[in-house]
Structure formats: structure tokens, C-alpha cells
Simulated scan of single mutants.
Amino acid sequence: MAAEAELTPTSYIQHHLQNLTVQVGEGGFWTLHVDTFVTAVAMGLLMVFMFWLATRKATAGVPGKWQAFVEICLEFVDRQARDTYHGTSKLVTPIAITLFFWILLMNLLKMIPADFFATVLGWFGIGYWKPVPTADVNATLGMSISVFFLMIFFALRAKGLGHFTLEFLTAPFGKWMMPFNLILNTVEWLSKPISLAMRLFGNMFGGEIVFLLIWVLGGAGIAGMFAGAAFGFGWMIFHLLVIPLQAFIFMMLSIVYLSLSEDSH
């Protein structure tokens, strides 16, 4: 492929939005986004490693700086989970912690210029690498579908299969409106994971495009370079708020959905 400097603005943006894919199965039945998968797993392992560092020398006395920081973060998430979820499950706080910090780390990759990944990986002959997993709808749908199955698990655990099925067919209009209840509840349950995934994906993908447009502007002469630097700095500051906010929204909505799945209509 041509060097980055020889790309047109359109092909430059398309290049950085292209996933590294591998066809899996007979006849390419399944397309695996290698960059999304590898980066998401790497950020998950990094999260575990960072928490392990805090617990390795944990003390009940005066904590170290990293231990204190991790404890503050965990207490914040735990407090939000307890205030939002009104059930009895002890899984909610670990789920909230995993979702928030994993998504936060994946979102933070947006702060690293895309050309950095392209240049380094180009040395190894890798032409495409989309660095932000949450800018890939497959990743956000994967997480939201996991939340969806957790919703079903929480509902079945709290209500039992019989009560859950009866409620699904008879609420909110009663047993004589069963077809309408079925349609309404199906749409309600399916819309939750879809909206959860699309909200995170839309914000991260849109931010990715704006960053790339700013880098393109930076290549348009001296004036473009200064304009790109100014706009890039402003957009980066704005995204320092968007990145944790989107992780927080995904976490909070997941907890709300888990709590609602246990409530009876």
C-alpha cells in the first residue's frame, strides 16, 4: 500500500477505519476482527494486572499511592452499584467494576494518535489496525449481548422460569392481550442491548472520525498545521470527559437493566 503521506484525505481516513480481519471457517463463514479482539483482550489483562499491583502489597494501615487510588475508584463504582441495584445478588459490583474499567481502558486508546499504531505495525508488515475496540460495533454488541444474557439470568434467578414466562406474556395489558404483550416485551428486551451497544459505538466511532479529520487538516500547509493543533488539543480535552463518561453510562445502564429484570410488573 502507498505510504501514508501519499494517501488522499479520503483514503487516509478509510485506511485508519479499516479493521485487520481474518476469514474463519469454510468459505469465509466468519470474519474475525483481529485488532479488536487482540486489543480488547490486552486491555482486559492490563486491567487485571493493574488491580493485582494494588493488592500485591496491600496494607490495612497507610496505603501506598496506587493502592489508595485503586481503592477510591473501586469504592466509587461500588457505591454507584449499590445505590442503583436493589436486589440481593453479589455479582453486580464485580460486573460493574469489570465493565467500567475495561471500557475506560479501551476508550483511552483514542488518546494515542492512530498514525503511531500504523507506523509501528507497518514495520512488521501489518497494513491495517483499528486501535480502539469500542469504535467497532462488534465489540460493543458483544458486551451488550453479554449484559442481555445476564439480564435473563437475573430474571430467571429472581422469578423462576414459570413466573418469568407468565409475566412476559401477560404484562402490562393482561392475559387477554397476550399477542400485544409478547410483541411489546420482545421489543423492550431487545432494544436494551442494541441501544447500549450503539450508544457507546456511536460516540467512540464519531470521535475517531473527528480526530482523523483534524489530522488531515494538520497536513494542509502551515495554517492547517496550526489549526489542526488547536482543534486537536480542544477535541482531546473534550474527549477526556467523553471517555470516562461513556464507560460510566454503559456501566450504569447495565446495572439499571439488571435491576429492572428482577422487578415484577
Rank of each mutant, 00 (worst) to 15 (best):
A158W: 00
G87V: 09
E75G: 15
V22I: 09
L121N: 07
M111A: 13
L213F: 02
W66D: 08
L109F: 06
L200I: 06
T98A: 15
A58N: 11
S254L: 04
C73L: 14
L212V: 01
E167N: 10
K57S: 13
I183M: 12
A171W: 09
I222M: 11
T55Q: 13
R79A: 14
H239Q: 15
M151E: 12
S11T: 14
F116M: 13
A197H: 07
M198I: 12
H33F: 08
I222C: 00
A2E: 13
F100N: 02
I183C: 03
H33D: 13
G127V: 11
K57W: 10
F248D: 08
A68E: 14
G160N: 06
V22Y: 09
Q23W: 02
A42C: 08
T21A: 00
V242S: 06
A42P: 05
E71H: 07
G224R: 07
S144V: 09
I194F: 12
M204T: 03
F153S: 06
V137W: 05
F51D: 03
F153N: 07
F49R: 11
A155W: 04
W52S: 13
A114D: 12
M47Q: 09
L74D: 01
L217A: 04
G206V: 09
A3P: 00
I249T: 01
V132P: 02
V92Y: 03
F226E: 11
I183Q: 03
L105K: 05
F154Y: 11
F149P: 02
E208P: 01
H86R: 12
T134W: 01
I145L: 15
G234C: 09
L213I: 04
D83M: 12
A40P: 05
I209F: 04
V92I: 15
M47S: 08
Y257G: 01
G162C: 02
L20V: 00
G219K: 07
L258Y: 00
F201L: 01
P172I: 04
H15W: 10
F250Q: 03
S261H: 03
T55N: 10
A230F: 15
L108Q: 07
G218M: 03
F124W: 12
F149Y: 14
V92F: 06
L213C: 10
F233R: 06
D263A: 07
T93A: 14
T55Y: 11
S191I: 13
H239R: 11
L166Q: 12
G207Y: 05
P179F: 03
K57R: 15
F37S: 06
M1C: 00
L213R: 00
L104M: 12
S261P: 00
Q246E: 15
F201R: 02
L156D: 02
M225S: 13
L240S: 09
L200T: 11
S89H: 07
P193F: 08
L166W: 11
E6S: 11
I255E: 05
L46A: 15
L104I: 09
H239C: 10
T93Q: 12
L253S: 04
E208I: 03
V62N: 11
V22T: 08
A96H: 02
N203Y: 07
L212Y: 01
L166P: 01
H15N: 09
T88W: 04
G162N: 12
F149K: 08
A54F: 06
